[in-house]
Write a protein that binds this DNA or RNA. Structure first.
Lengths: 143, 143
DNA sequence: GTATCTGCAAAACATTTGCAATTCT
DNA sequence: AGAATTGCAAATGTTTTGCAGATAC
């Protein structure tokens, strides 16, 4: 599903019109190897050790570029918290309100025609849910 | 669907555990008479003339209270933009990427069981789409 | 050598907090 | 009077912008 090698990542980015700089490749690699839908902060903190001079501005620039070039999508689940996902296919997200974990789920809204939207041109589909994940349900029962 | 009178609004807020102060009643009235899913700024600007001393803090406080007491929901459609809706039922939102208008649509995600989420407890359902509304499609054709 | 990319510092916004003044009962 | 609410000013946090230096082709 995702490129498996650094060269694969470079080729993928090039195909999408993105020059594969070190920072961009590392950020994309982080996104595809950490499917937790990280925030800018999480990405920055994770890579700052390895890329000593990395700045948050670059992380912002890069993710804005990724979204514009459609190699990543923005995930909105909470106010004041923008998360990113390298899986650009139509799928849903479930966030646990106890542990804040985000799970993907298979669901393509585009497959469900909506009467109220006839006549409009739909280009993006988003579905998300919140609740308590099974891990947190278990931990609660133990108390 | 929504209370039709000021007294109706007061009763509704009281039922939900909210003391109906002037500011709260006016903000709730604005929400149910302007179904455009306004931002804090839009609500503040719309009411500032009438409520001379209204502060943005009060608009923030009030909407946080409304969400907590479940008389309004947060609508996330864009980064850094929180919108509010007094319709707390499960339904979807469509935003036009040309004119930014937000339309409601009838769609209850809760009616669509998701295999990947078996074992988790889902308490909130959100669906939204983006695209170009029919008004903007028409204006484009005219050019 | 010219374009682009990076990263610092500052600016721009959105939201929250602390607290004093006001309102309501 | 006592409790809750309002609203100002300051603080916090996130994202963008301007620009100078570094990098790539």
């Amino acid at each position: 599903m995702f490129p498996q090698t650094i060269d694969g990542i470079k080729d993928h980015l090039k195909t999408k019109g993105i020059k594969p700089s070190l920072q961009r490749v590392k950020i994309y690699e982080y996104l595809i190897t950490h499917r937790s839908h990280p925030t800018i902060d999480e990405i920055y903190n994770a890579l700052a050790d390895e890329l000593m001079t990395l700045s948050k501005t670059t992380v912002y620039n890069t993710l804005n570029l990724f979204v514009e070039k459609k190699v990543a999508i923005v995930i909105l689940l909470e106010e004041n918290e923008t998360r990113y996902d390298a899986d650009v296919s139509n799928h849903g997200h479930f966030q646990c309100i106890e542990c804040n974990k985000v799970l993907d789920f298979n669901y393509d809204l585009a497959q469900h025609p909506i009467k109220d939207l006839e006549g409009h041109m739909v280009t993006e589909y988003h579905a998300y849910m919140k609740g308590v994940c099974n891990d947190c349900i278990k931990s609660k029962k133990e108390c």
